[in-house]
Design a binder for these strands. Structure first.
Length: 591
DNA sequence: TGGCAATACTG
DNA sequence: CAGTAT
DNA sequence: GCCA
């Protein structure tokens, strides 16, 4: 008897995520039906929510990404959900039902859907520079939509639940113009529901341990400098994260999960049998020291290992033994000074606030320039490690012009107190910033070498790496996050600290591209790294080469650089939306 | 057994 | 070129 | 480490 015979399901926001495709296949195999059109939805349809839109506190993330990624018309579907009061459960319940061979929707699994939009608009003070944003920041997908409107039908309607709490400037961007529009800082608005379904996590119980173990092994080999072996573990780990069933044996894992080979299968078996792997419990003391160092900006494994081999345990010790490391690679001084701040996660709303400061300043310099937040922010992360700002100008392929604008922009922001430090120099930046470097050198008693001359490169950099922060009074509105990982400087290194709990310094990167390379460049800076490697490998297997400048054939002839979706097409891949790029592996499943 | 993404910036 | 970064 |  088929488990789901006759039952209709709709998967939200869409069924294209790799793990969902797999579950959808199983569902159909067991007699379930997937709705393909809005009108097929009836009062008995079961709503499956992609787990990546359910937070770890078991609440539905009804934010902009959720609705943006709907296959079907979001407002029609959501209206149906509300009027029929359809049952919403996690998509991964499918694997649970299959495993138990029992299709039962226990009441505690049902996520409630009514809107309890509390007014969270705390943002009325100290936001002057936000409320006069001249051009919108978060318009990436709308731009894409515009570029593609030939191939797509009408622009999709934005559902009410979404647009009501939505950044108005986005809508006005559709009209091609937006002045004096109010920018909400509640872009990542979540409507939280507290439903305790703790027994149904997205990762099957028991696999967590394996994931953690592989992560540790990856970390260990990374610190050893064996990047490829580390990569092997990382890919296997991603595979297990995506695998919807409990792993019962090493052989099963090797058979079903890509990037799990003989060696990892054996380790998995050992873990299942013994609950642990020899020597995995904790990093060795030496590894801890390497770890401490490499978390500092501009300290990689090479330097960290060099210091560790010399028995050094802290930056201050390293500073006395290898002073030239610090005077030559002066950005280390800022990595040290902001060590703790730069390891703190950044909330989306703070990303937005900082970005709008930048955007305002940019508008003064050149109103034609556009800026977008890419990186993990764009992939929908609740907390970001840094803020990646991406600059371009319609019709402008002159990269040095944009470079100069970014340079002026960063210096203006430095003068206004937002930029705290630069991590690379141009002649202009050196002039403005030199004294701060000297100050840091003196602070740790390094002689300020007069030979501290800086290579003023002829061409403008197309990339700026900065430390930025909001003034204390403007920062106050952002609730502090409870840090799970709270990385601390050792006491003997604290004297260099410029960290601030009140208003932490943040890492911000500026990137730019030629207008003609917009698609390829966005692809790169949206990332994540693993996705970039995956898709570039894909290109390579097709005899092509993909870079931030475009997709090239084997004769280095440009095939496409402007249209992101066209690049996917040429690679024979379905378009993968930014938030889905977090979980891409080489193969979903072995045959 | 060789290859594992591809590029930018710095000394 | 090597090292660190994205 | 894994894979072709």
């Amino acid at each position: 008897m088929l488990l789901f015979k006759g039952t209709k399901f709709v998967i939200l926001p869409n069924r294209n995520a790799s793990s969902l495709k797999f579950l959808a296949e199983l569902l159909v195999k067991e007699g379930g039906m997937l709705v393909n059109e809005e009108k097929e939805i009836d009062c008995d349809t079961i709503v499956l929510i992609n787990d990546s839109f359910i937070t770890n506190t078991n609440t539905i993330m009804k934010n902009e990404l959720f609705f943006k990624e709907f296959d079907l018309d979001p407002s029609t579907v959501w209206n149906n959900v509300n009027t029929y009061k359809l049952k919403c459960v996690r998509a991964t319940c499918i694997s649970e039902w299959l495993r138990k061979s029992s299709f039962q929707i226990n009441p505690e699994l049902v996520l409630s859907v009514e809107d309890n939009l509390e007014d969270n608009s705390e943002d009325h003070s100290g936001v002057k520079f936000v409320t006069h944003s001249a051009t919108p920041l978060y318009n990436y997908d709308l731009i894409t939509a515009k570029l593609l409107k030939n191939s797509e039908k009408a622009a999709r309607q934005i559902p009410e639940v979404y647009s009501s709490s939505q950044n108005k400037s986005e809508n006005s961007e559709l009209a091609g113009k937006s002045m004096e529009t109010e920018v909400s800082n509640k872009m990542g608005e979540e409507v939280k529901r507290t439903v305790d379904i703790s027994q149904t996590t997205s990762v099957p119980k028991g696999n967590e341990k394996l994931i953690q173990a592989l992560g540790r092994l990856a970390k260990r080999y990374e610190m050893k400098g064996d990047q490829f072996r580390a990569r092997g573990y990382k890919l296997a780990r991603i595979g297990i994260e995506q695998y919807p069933f409990k792993i019962e044996s090493g052989a099963q894992a090797q058979e079903e999960i890509s990037n799990v080979g003989a060696s990892i299968a054996k380790k998995i078996q050992t873990l299942l049998d013994n609950g642990s792997l020899p020597g995995l419990q904790e990093l060795f003391e030496s590894e801890k020291r390497v770890d401490y160092f490499t978390r500092c900006h501009d300290i990689g494994i090479y330097t960290a290992k060099k210091w560790e081999i010399m028995g050094l345990k802290s930056f201050s010790e390293a500073c006395t033994i290898f002073p030239e490391d610090f005077t030559r690679d002066w950005p280390i001084l800022f990595g040290w000074s902001y060590y703790e701040d730069w390891l703190k996660p950044i909330r989306r709303d703070e990303c937005e606030k900082l970005a709008s400061v930048v955007q305002q300043e940019l508008h003064l310099i050149d109103p034609q320039m556009k800026v977008e937040i890419l990186g993990s922010y764009h992939r929908g992360a609740e907390k970001c490690g840094d803020i990646d700002l991406f600059f371009y100008k319609a019709g402008c392929d002159d990269i040095s012009e944009i470079g100069r604008i970014m340079e002026d922009l960063s210096i203006s922001l430095y003068r206004k107190g937002y930029v705290q430090c630069f991590l690379q120099l141009t002649r202009k930046i050196y002039k403005a910033f030199n004294k701060i470097i000297i100050n840091r050198l003196e602070k740790c008693h390094l002689k300020t070498t007069p030979t501290l001359q800086y290579t003023a490169r002829d061409d403008n950099p197309r990339k700026f790496m900065l430390g930025v922060k909001l003034p204390d009074k403007e920062k106050r509105q952002f609730e502090s996050i409870t840090f799970v990982d709270n990385y601390k400087l050792k006491p003997e290194d604290m004297f260099m600290s410029l960290n601030s709990d009140r208003s932490p310094c943040r890492r911000m990167d500026f990137f730019c591209c030629k207008y003609s390379e917009l698609g390829a460049a966005r692809l790169q800076w949206i990332g994540p790294k693993e996705f970039n490697r995956w898709i570039r490998l894909k290109a390579m297997h097709n005899g092509l080469k993909l870079t931030q400048h475009g997709l090239y054939d084997n004769h280095n002839v440009l095939l496409e650089s402007f249209d992101e979706q066209r690049i996917f097409q040429l690679l024979n891949e379905d378009y993968i939306s930014p938030s889905e790029r977090n979980h891409v592996v080489k193969k979903r499943r072995k045959v």
